[in-house]
């Protein structure tokens, strides 16, 4: 009898102990360059905040997984993806053909485009092709930098962070910055220091869509993420977040 009771106790213990494991959600980590307001940044208490981090929590809830966001420097963020440092890159990544060759993208979740930011004293220059012979800054490896690089007569200065480019523009070291419109608006319209000296000129001149980048072939994670995205698109949560952060 004693043997049987012991065995029963053991089985019960194992069963109870494995309950959490059975109930646990799959975990996905996201590399994110948190220097890019309003999409992702650190708040005053150094917590990760912004559109992307909030959105991914909503996506995770809907898609049935746990999302952990890791602050990662932009330069090399894709190398980390290939190396497996994280499962996906969630960092206002524009979907491009070039990138799609080496990684998989989720369905698009934000529409954006490049704009030009200049000093308020500059007049009459609204198109990128007018900046020949000038120094134009952009974050390294972004679609903004790619756009500037198309013009051989523009001196491209690439920065590790968008904010550093804006600062150099403010100080007068460069003549313009090309950056995603949501980010441009945050700096130019909301930042106390910059809004009196900088302005956005011209129209958004590219059509871009942000997507979540995954290592090629990671279909399981891709399905979970896309499922979550579809749900929050349909139920209006995405629109609400958009309204909160990007308007």
């Amino acid at each position: 009898m004693k043997m049987f009771q012991k065995a029963l106790l053991a089985v019960a213990t194992v069963a109870i102990a494995s309950l959490p494991a059975l109930a646990a959600l799959p975990k996905l980590t996201f590399g994110c360059d948190c220097t890019y307001p309003p999409m992702e940044m650190l708040d005053a208490s150094k917590k990760i905040t912004g559109f992307d981090p909030e959105m991914i929590q909503a996506v995770a809830k809907a898609g049935g997984f746990e999302a952990v966001v890791k602050n990662t420097a932009w330069d090399g963020i894709f190398a980390g993806l290939t190396a497996g440092d994280y499962d996906a890159v969630l960092s206002a990544v524009t979907i491009t053909d070039e990138r799609a060759r080496t990684m998989d993208f989720s369905i698009p979740y934000v529409e954006a485009g490049q704009v030009i930011v200049v000093n308020q004293s500059v007049n009459g220059m609204t198109l990128l092709n007018q900046f020949g012979g000038h120094k134009v800054g952009a974050q390294i490896g972004t679609t903004g930098a790619i756009e500037v690089a198309k013009y051989k007569n523009i001196k491209l200065k690439s920065y590790d962070e968008a904010g550093l480019a804006i600062e150099d523009l403010y100080v007068g070291r460069i003549d313009a910055v090309v950056v995603d419109s949501p980010t441009a608006r945050t700096y130019v319209l909301q930042n106390a220091k910059y809004k009196s000296k900088l302005k956005i000129v011209g129209e958004q001149f590219t059509d871009e869509h942000y997507g979540i980048a995954l290592k090629k072939g990671n279909t399981k994670a891709l399905e979970m993420i896309n499922r979550g995205l579809e749900i929050i698109k349909k139920n209006g949560e995405l629109a609400k977040l958009s309204h909160k952060w990007l308007d």
Binding site: F78, I140, A145, S158, D160, L164
Partner: peptide, 21 residues
């Protein structure tokens, strides 16, 4: 790191757009 377009930075720029790290 100061956006001075030196040798290393050019290398980084190339790698970040082509992924040939």
């Amino acid at each position: 790191i100061l956006a001075v377009s030196d040798l290393l930075r050019r290398g980084r720029e190339f790698a970040s757009t082509t992924f040939n790290y």
